[in-house]
Write a protein that binds this DNA or RNA. Structure first.
Length: 437
RNA sequence: GUGGCUGUAGCUCAGUUGGUAAGAGCACCCGACUGUGGAUCGGGAGGUCGGGGGUUCAAGUCCCCUCAGCCACCCCA
């Protein structure tokens, strides 16, 4: 046990697992770019004010989950989510002036000071998008379709798309009033958490899982009944657009989302197989955020995909194994004796310079042990360069796949030969020159 | 932040009411008449039993604290 451990809620990504992340990144990148999204990279930390302003002062994230760093009178916070930073960059560089409508995507770590749990860490990775500059409900549908395509691209199938509309400010105010009026008389009957939610964010009461509260909520007024005409029309168009795409979805009134900036369309992608923490994509429209951060009135929509949860879902479905394991060098150089090492050392550099991937022993292992290492590392070819070979100006190439070995001149075009053999394994010849099996 | 469970070699785990129990499998290293991998066999290294304190003649085994992970909440990707 070493003296130090990774800080709570963080983890090391060992080489074995890195290719899995690369696969997820590459797969998503391809889909995102096919949908016309361009990558943007914003700083990992921003001025603290940016988050408290955009997320809402009373949200849990701002109140207790921010990684904040105070130095003198400057306060910065490691980003708990990416939307605020992207919108800030969009405005700071006046992107809206040259090309108002823009689609961005990002991949990177986010930070929240929470109690860790599976699929919930203090540093976690999100892949997300922001489409800024349009209020077209077809864009909402496209964004949801994009989320589904991302998951499908990774091989996931059994996710549920849940959508809802929380309307615009006036709709929310109207509904909040109705809901408050409905709950207030029975407030004492609700659970402790709900009584707190009632004060902070009354919509969340609808999301309670306590049996008593679920029963009490049964006859609660529905948000959709309180949407104004324009909001309702937007939501209807979203639904018909999704239907036009053949994308299955459910309208779920319980989806209210935690952040203040959401308006109209909100949605989540759930993996029922994951248990309690089963939302792997969450997002929605935020038509006033750009304005609140000091820009003109520009509507936008976005979502983010939690990579950790997505990987958990992939693991459950056996989609990860194929992407595990670091790809070792296909060529391994073996030195029979101590005196043979310098020439292997030089030959390795030459092969690498020619673009081949080659490696060799640096632990002073015996010939046998070097062979074992080559085998374990999955080398396709072993190059044996001993005193005998050197004196004759050749190198012995053993094909580990077919167990056939053959000599090749050192001064010939060795790298060309090696490429050929890698593509087409050595086969035993009729007068077999040393194959065994 | 709240409640519960867990923490023994690199990995997965076993350790009877506290008393030669610090062990197994896999992995690893070395070897099997000395220029060759994968099978088999033999040998070996590796753990202050998460950390600290306490009870006791004696603690991996009991108590307290602490750290970390997991599960469920709060909340959320």
């Amino acid at each position: 046990m070493s003296k130090f451990k990774a800080a709570r809620g963080t983890e090391d990504l060992l080489p074995e697992r890195v290719p899995l992340y690369n696969f997820v990144h590459e797969s998503c990148r391809a889909v995102l770019e096919r949908f016309g999204y361009a990558e943007i990279r914003t700083p990992l930390f921003e001025e603290t004010r940016l988050f408290s302003r955009s997320l809402g002062e009373t949200t849990d994230i701002v109140e207790k989950e921010m990684f904040t760093c105070q130095r003198g009178d400057t306060s910065v916070t490691f980003r708990p989510e990416a939307t605020a930073g992207v919108v800030r960059a969009y405005l700071e560089h006046n992107l809206h002036k040259s090309k108002k409508f823009q689609k961005f995507y990002y991949i990177g770590p986010m930070f929240r000071f929470e109690r860790p749990q599976a699929a919930r860490q203090r540093q976690f990775e999100q892949i997300g998008i922001e489409a800024i500059g349009s209020h077209d409900p077809r864009l909402d549908a496209e964004v949801i379709e994009l989320g589904a395509r991302l998951l499908e691209g990774l091989g996931l199938k059994d996710f549920e798309v849940r959508i809802n509309s929380i309307g615009d400010r006036e709709d929310r105010d109207r509904y909040r009033e109705a809901l408050t009026a409905f709950i207030r008389p029975k407030l004492e009957e609700y659970c402790e958490d709900c009584r707190r939610r009632f004060e902070r964010n009354v919509f969340r009461v609808l999301d309670c899982k306590q049996r008593g509260c679920v029963a009490l909520n049964k006859d609660a007024p529905a948000f959709l009944d309180h949407l104004g005409e324009a909001s309702l029309a937007h939501f209807d168009e979203l639904r018909s657009s999704l239907e036009a795409l053949g994308r299955e979805f459910q309208v779920d009134p319980a989806i209210v989302r935690g952040l203040d900036y959401y308006t109209h369309t909100v949605f989540e992608f759930k993996m029922p197989s994951l248990g309690a923490r089963n939302t792997i994509i969450g997002g929605g429209r935020y038509n006033h955020l750009v304005e609140e951060l000091g820009g003109p009135e520009i509507p936008a929509i976005g979502f983010s995909l939690g990579v950790t949860g997505t990987l958990l879902a992939m693991e459950k479905q056996g989609l990860c194994e194929a992407h595990l394991g670091w790809r070792e060098c296909p060529i391994y150089l073996v030195s029979p004796g101590e005196a043979d090492r310098p020439s292997a050392f030089v030959l390795a550099q030459e092969l690498r310079a020619s673009g081949l991937c080659a490696d060799l022993d640096y632990e002073g292992k015996s010939l046998k042990a070097q062979m074992r290492t080559a085998h374990r590392r999955g080398a396709s070819l072993v190059l044996i360069l001993g005193e005998d070979e050197r004196s004759r100006g050749v190198v012995l190439v053993r094909d580990m796949r077919s167990s056939v070995q053959e000599e090749f001149p050192l001064d010939g075009d060795l790298q060309v030969e090696l490429r050929r053999i890698l593509a087409e394994p050595l086969q035993a010849e009729e007068e077999g020159s040393g194959g065994d099996s």
